[in-house]
């Protein structure tokens, strides 16, 4: 890991919406090809952290570097930076007035000025890989939640971003749709993409992550490999947090004891 080059560096990031700090002195590096999963209780600042990286939120102090260049300055050309940072949101955020193909091609053709035919061919290749080629002319309203999220991932991917941010992309999905979206993300991770994922799916986090970052109250409390974090968390706060996900097992054990 030490040999790998740093792709994203977050240094002493402070974020405040005006009623108390949301992120306090957050520092984090993400290396090329690394999958970082950020977990923590609701309202701990996970989503805000991702949104800061993408310039959707103003930060109060600290800085963020992408490829060694500071991207948190006033003169930052976000339109350019965002081409290198793909982001997928929790809400089904496809453009409802466009077909699947048009949704995917908007970025490549209008932002990157790529040839439409060439971009369309690539879009079809990716759609085929995730099993949605037959939906290429469908409108978002004709898709299930899971299908929409997969298209949203394709829409971000086709820009060939250097890093992908996933903000609780399965949180609004019906349980049976979650898997198909997570599978696409696992596939991406395997193919060497650099990713930052905010999720509440603990088993998925364990499977996909190279590193777990545990965030609480706007601070990074723990950073560790998934193995260590899920089996031997260092802080009490992380232990308590993980316990909230394992009530089934405890109940079974309790039952046996009685």
């Amino acid at each position: 890991m030490k040999e790998k080059e740093k792709l994203l560096e977050i240094k002493h990031l402070h974020k405040d919406y005006g009623n108390g700090p949301v992120l306090k002195d957050v520092s984090l590096n993400v290396h090329k090809g690394e999958v970082v999963v950020i977990i923590g209780p609701s309202g701990c600042g996970k989503s805000t952290l991702l949104r800061c990286i993408n310039g959707l939120e103003q930060i109060q102090s600290g800085k963020i570097l992408l490829d060694g260049e500071v991207i948190t300055e006033n003169k930052t050309k976000w339109s350019e930076v965002r081409q290198k940072i793909g982001m997928v949101f929790q809400s089904y955020d496809l453009f409802p007035h466009m077909t699947v193909t048009d949704n995917i091609l908007l970025g490549p053709t209008k932002v990157q000025g790529r040839d439409k035919k060439e971009a369309e061919a690539e879009a079809e290749r990716i759609l085929e890989r995730i099993g949605l080629l037959d939906k290429k002319n469908a409108f978002p309203r004709q898709l299930s939640g899971g299908q929409k999220q997969r298209v949203a991932i394709v829409r971000a991917l086709i820009m060939k971003p250097e890093i992908m941010l996933f903000d609780e992309v399965t949180a609004a999905l019906d349980p049976e749709m979650v898997r198909e979206v997570l599978d696409v993300m696992l596939e991406l991770a395997k193919s060497g993409s650099t990713m930052m994922i905010v999720t509440h799916e603990m088993q998925f986090a364990r499977a996909v992550a190279d590193r777990i970052v545990f965030l609480d109250g706007g601070e990074i409390l723990e950073t560790d490999t998934p193995e260590k974090f899920f089996t031997r968390p260092k802080t009490d706060r992380a232990k308590r947090f993980l316990n909230t996900f394992s009530f089934h097992m405890e109940r079974e054990r309790g039952g046996k004891a009685i």
Partner: peptide, 29 residues
Amino acid sequence: PGHQYESGAAIGLTKLQIYRYIIIPQTLQ
């Protein structure tokens, strides 16, 4: 909804492009 502006921004569209390709067409519809 606000996320329409944000997801437009997230793929690198400028403010003008967000209005032209995403917001105005939907408003007209």
